[in-house]
């Protein structure tokens, strides 16, 4: 366990100093700060637009950070030969991979926490309802986004055990888009009574293989209080466990590949 924690801590130290990540984070924070100014351009209720825009900024920025942070993680260690000094110590490959993943998730958490703090502060300044409950409700979406980004990081770590960073960038990005946009479509196909059995089976397979990133897009009830998630706490717990289960599968698959890989 100490090896995993040491590797994770070092990964966080490295990640929070990576300029490219800090620039992406800075751009995200800047957009969050100027978002209230952009809200007046919309004809819709300012608060609705502001909430939607700010949550969108956090989600997009976090997704870019998650992908950029993780696709280079393992290849960089191999290219710079830092992996050799680590693996020549009493460190198993699975410990190394898990340590790197946890480090990536901690780093993501830190960066997302910063953006969420800015979101809460800006929202608090702008909102008419400044109650703790109203502000607290805004934090639900970034919390779910964090689970989503942890899942995205696991996808990237899995691919990084056997493909080059550039290919990984497109594969992970593609999976994210497909899992966010098309998974609900395949889910509907699978559940629809009128769907042909073959189509249903195909939709079922795709729906199972493809991580359902859309599960975590919980911004609608926050943006628009007239929409509600039935049994909200249970839903959040279920999708969190779904994410953890999927992350577990991806990490085990990644470990099995990485264990046999020549580095």
């Amino acid at each position: 366990m100490r090896q995993i924690l040491s590797i994770a801590t070092t990964t966080v130290g490295e990640a929070i100093r990576r300029r490219v990540l800090l620039i992406i984070l800075l751009i995200g924070v800047l957009f969050l700060v100027v978002a209230p100014g952009l809200g007046v351009l919309s004809a819709r209720s300012e608060t609705v637009v502001l909430r939607g825009m700010m949550l969108g900024i956090i989600q997009l920025t976090s997704a870019v950070i998650a992908i950029v942070l993780t696709v280079y993680m393992i290849p960089n260690e191999i290219e710079r030969r830092t992996i050799y000094t680590i693996l020549s110590k009493p460190v198993q490959r699975w410990q190394f991979l898990i340590g790197k993943y946890l480090g990536a998730v901690f780093s993501l958490g830190l960066m997302m926490a910063l953006m969420t703090a800015v979101l809460v502060f800006v929202f608090w300044l702008q909102a008419s309802d400044q109650s703790l409950a109203a502000v607290g409700a805004m934090v639900k979406a970034p919390t779910m986004y964090f689970v989503q980004m942890s899942l995205l990081a696991a996808v990237a770590i899995f691919f990084s055990t056997f493909v080059a960073p550039l290919v990984n960038f497109f594969l992970t990005g593609g999976m994210y888009l497909l899992g966010s946009l098309f998974n609900p479509f395949f889910q509907t196909l699978q559940e629809n009574q009128g769907t042909h059995p073959v189509t249903k089976a195909f939709a079922g397979i795709v729906n199972t293989i493809l991580p359902n990133f859309a599960n975590y897009n919980v911004q609608n009830p926050i943006i628009n209080p007239t929409q509600v998630i039935q049994n909200e706490s249970r839903y959040y717990l279920e999708v969190t466990f779904y994410g953890l289960f999927y992350i577990g599968i991806l990490l085990v698959a990644g470990i099995l590949i990485f264990d046999r890989r020549e580095v």
């Binding site: 090896q3 040491s6 070092t10 130290g13 100093r17 000094t85 110590k89």
Partner: peptide
């Protein structure tokens, strides 16, 4: 055993002392 690779690269943000702390922690 221990290993010193050819043209080694270490985490540049660490100080010499922190680097030894990191590698030391891998051994406990």
């Amino acid at each position: 055993i221990s290993y010193l690779p050819e043209r080694p690269y270490y985490y540049e943000h660490m100080t010499g002392l922190e680097l030894l702390k990191f590698y030391g922690s891998l051994f406990g």
